[in-house]
Amino acid sequence: MCVHRKGFAVALIILLLSSGQALSADKQILLNELYDNARLERQLDWIRASMTLETGKYTLPEVVVKTVNQVVEVRYSASFYRSSMLATLDEALSVGELLRLLDWYNSNLGQKVLSLEMAANDPANRLRMQGYIEERLGQQLPRTSRIRLIEELMETMDAEELGTELVASASVGAQRLLREIMPMQEGYAVRPPEILKAREKPAIRKGISDEMRNLYLYTYRSLPDNEIRAYLDFARSTAMQNFQRGQMQAMARML
């Protein structure tokens, strides 16, 4: 009997291990599908743009500017970004949440929202968005009910806090990269990234509320109220909340 029980226990362990491996493989398939469907690689454009130095804008030797930009191009490759993002989302999302997110991004409204967000976040669209904010929103804001709906979406997505974290991470990351290229003289202590970010956040947070509201008003300007409410309903789900925070956490880690 003891031998049979021992054999059964071994078989059970093998079965559990193989099931776990199969589940892990299935989750990786879902993660890769979500990465592609949600077009997460487009966020890499924002990271590169935020870390790249514009020639002639800084009082730095030209060779330093060129070296920094070359390092950014190599360091923030598509393969690095994908593997880093998937590793963090694997921690943040369950299989059930992945399935719900995939259903959303395969829906008509999900595709429409994604298209609008991609266009708004494209660095090449920056001047057009700035013009809309200055000319349209600067002269006349949308009706009060529309603004409240947009602000509710911002609050649900925790846009101000996550935006503050991301901007601070990019700023500190750019400073760290510059120190790597052009080391400081000995004797100057370099504070840990979290302390540097904590010092920058109050100033960023102070002005980000209006900026975020204008960004949201621009991004979703063509969506009718009923579709924004439908998006808001999904944004409140645990799946979307974890997905949003997982993306920001992954980008902050990379920066």
Rank of each mutant, 00 (worst) to 15 (best):
Q247C: 12
E152C: 12
Q249V: 14
Y216K: 03
R253S: 10
E227T: 04
S77L: 12
S94F: 05
S209R: 10
A119C: 00
D36L: 11
D233E: 12
M184Y: 04
I47S: 06
S209A: 05
L109G: 09
E180I: 01
L89F: 11
N121G: 14
E62A: 12
P224A: 06
A124P: 03
A78K: 14
S19D: 08
A9S: 14
L255I: 04
K57F: 04
R39A: 09
L53M: 14
A9C: 15
P192A: 03
E200F: 10
L99Q: 12
R236I: 11
R146V: 08
R100D: 10
L15A: 14
Q111R: 15
Y105H: 08
E134N: 15
E134V: 11
M248K: 04
Q244D: 00
E152V: 04
G20T: 11
E135M: 12
R126N: 06
I133G: 05
K27G: 01
N106K: 13
L177F: 07
L127H: 05
P224Y: 04
R136N: 13
L17A: 15
K57I: 05
V74P: 00
L30E: 15
L162N: 09
A189W: 08
Q244W: 03
A250I: 00
E161S: 15
R205V: 03
L149P: 07
L196H: 00
L89E: 06
L232K: 01
S18D: 04
L89N: 02
T164W: 11
E73A: 08
E33S: 13
K27H: 05
Y231S: 02
Q130A: 09
I47P: 05
I150Q: 07
L12P: 02
R82T: 09
L89P: 00
E62G: 13
Y35W: 06
Y220W: 12
L141H: 08
P142A: 01
A9K: 15
E97I: 06
I14T: 14
L141E: 07
G56M: 14
A230R: 01
R146Q: 08
E155W: 14
N214I: 05
Q43S: 15
G187C: 05
A119V: 04
L177K: 05
